[in-house]
Write a protein that binds this DNA or RNA. Structure first.
Lengths: 360, 360
DNA sequence: GGCACGACGGCAACGGGTTGCCATGTATTG
DNA sequence: CAATACATGGCAACCCGTTGCCGTCGTGCC
């Protein structure tokens, strides 16, 4: 096995290169950081010597004086949640193309963990992308005072934000369900600390008003398949014909839970999700959902962060909003489609023990 | 908006604390890094002053002399692949509990990208976890010479590795399918650069030998749902009754593709995946698959890396192997279950245009 | 010819800790 | 009581680049 202890990687420094090239260290430094500041022949010679010696500038040493580490932190609420995959990739790619490295922090849906991790990374990064932060506005502002911060999927005044067009997405859902004959939509809500959760509910409230569709809310539940299954139980107690879930995972859990209790989707109830994660396309029935431009979100937020780091003052003050699109699959259908199906859908068969217990 | 340019975060330094506490900077330094080296009262006083001044030791400055950045790199093949979610989380948690920060690198299934990214991060991290690297053995050994490296899901001599028990998993699959009456298993292979791919195929070869089950291989395909769908087309040309796919995503794609062409799973063909990603449980039919201890993999690899960084020489030379477990769901069934179903399963109906084209 | 200016390179301080070595004072030991 | 050991704290060098400032030299211009 390689021995990592004795000479723990003795890389050449600018001093080595300087000695070898018969110039001063500062010239070597400039040859790399400000090539215009040094004679092109000298620079070339230095570069060759450096090459020969395998010199690479040490980012840490550089950071010490420039206070630019060329690293950014990307904080996500839960890496287990597939929405973040594309976001992370978008961010990573934007970072790389800007010569930046990404430090990923998984907050595990915990306010406390999130703060602690950021606290530790703070001094090491040039900026932070906060994707679906669970922290309070004031906590975020605190961080924003110390480092450039871009917030994703949340709007906070005085902090640059990029969000998806939730109102428009919800509106499209309401229209779609309305066209299918539904006059009542139940919103299954996610974590209360989640900003889009509130936004979506309010948007639904508003859309309901305009389109003359009644709306109600149940929850909160955790934004997972399991949370959706739990919601199914509650939903069973107060049936609905159309449901909008906070996100796809919950929608999928909902379908599963409902199926288990003998409720048919979309026959008895139409279900809509949010995000269009890959799984939305592989469940049965395929999930109608609002597609968010995940990759673009990560990429846009990161690019914005980089321009801030590079010293651009002007952000508009308004959040940057990204377009969404309704993806219609099989989980939504006309209300009570076939007249022949006259039986009361929700009491077709005895629910399983667990739900029954909750029903009493 | 906060102004990030003028005083870009003037944190207190050991010098500030030293002046305030009437000691020399070195004492302040020691109060934090080697508390035993300084009088406990003095240390306490220093700590209080530090607290009051909001002092935090600057990891970069520290790293400059100690050459310990307290960061590790976690390199994964494709963040879009859900297997990595749990691995990342396991790694992150192990890192955090060891006071380490994780730099995530997504190689996007590209050898070149992977190398470039590692190259850049190399000098900034104390060690590297390579999860499912697509690089050559020699490239990996090169890196391992410069920094502690732990390889995940791959065995390379002279480099510490942690792998799952692929042979055992495959063996259990073969037994399971054998018990269901299958005497022939087709392996749908993933990327050739993937180590577990080769391992699984060889294990199947061996298991087939012992259990007197014939085996064959098709592929390679990309390890995605789409790759699985493509495989379905090829499989259609040379039917099988039992299939083991390189991973769950391919298995899911396979089921989809087959369904589309009118082939029933598991009625006509049994399908088994690998990894037990969350989606395996939500597809219809539920996917029989080999569950890998994802979280444990990430965690074990990272912990091992940390002990290496801390200077432990002794690794056994043998890869650490983690147990797997067969999860039986609905995608596998007895071969030709109902005698009444006499029709030739694979030609039940006309395939769709695209497959037909490939068939000609 | 005198002068201003730009190109180029070096000096030295700096960033924020870490650490080997020495000095002092106190406790221990014979 | 002398000799030795230990606890504690300071000094100064060091890690590796960056950068403000200055000196030198060659060139162009009046």
């Amino acid at each position: 096995m390689p021995d990592h202890t004795s000479p723990p990687d003795k890389r050449a420094t600018i001093y080595d290169v300087a000695a070898e090239a018969n110039v001063s260290p500062s010239t070597v430094s400039r040859a790399f950081s400000k090539p215009s500041r040094v004679n092109s022949e000298t620079a070339e010679r230095i570069r060759q010597v450096a090459e020969r010696l395998g010199y690479r500038t040490n980012p840490l040493a550089r950071a010490l004086t420039t206070s630019r580490t060329h690293m950014i932190a990307l904080v996500i609420a839960d890496i287990t949640n597939p929405v973040y995959a594309e976001i992370v990739r978008g961010a990573q790619e934007a970072a790389m193309s800007g010569e930046y490295t990404t430090v990923l922090i998984d907050a595990q849906e915990s306010d406390r963990l999130e703060r602690a991790a950021i606290e530790r990374a703070m001094s090491t990064v040039d900026g932070i992308v906060l994707a679906s932060s669970r922290m309070s506005d004031s906590a975020i502002r605190m961080f924003a005072k110390q480092r450039p911060v871009v917030v994703l999927n949340r709007a906070i005044s005085d902090v640059p934000c990029v969000v998806t067009d939730n109102p428009r997405g919800v509106r499209r859902v309401a229209e779609h369900l309305g066209e299918l004959g539904h006059d009542h939509i139940t919103y299954v809500s996610g974590p209360q600390a989640s900003w889009p959760n509130g936004t979506r509910w309010r948007a639904l409230l508003e859309a309901g008003m305009e389109l003359e569709i009644k709306v109600r809310q149940i929850g909160p539940f955790s934004p997972t398949i399991e949370g959706g299954e739990r919601a199914a139980v509650e939903l069973f107690a107060r049936p609905a014909t159309a449901v909008l879930a906070f996100n796809d995972q919950m929608a999928i859990g909902l379908i599963r839970g409902l199926n288990r209790m003998g409720v048919d989707v979309p026959g008895d109830v139409s279900i809509v999700g949010f995000d269009n994660i890959p799984a939305a396309d592989i469940v049965t029935p395929g999930l109608t959902t609002v597609a968010a431009p995940l990759y673009a979100e990560g990429s846009a937020a990161t690019r914005h962060l980089l321009t801030m780091i590079r010293g651009a003052h002007g952000h508009t003050g308004r959040p940057m909003v990204l377009p969404v699109r309704l993806v219609i699959r099989r989980s939504t259908a006309t209300r009570n489609p076939s007249p022949g199906r006259a039986r009361s859908p929700w009491v077709r068969q005895r629910p399983r023990p667990n739900p029954a217990a909750r029903l009493s």
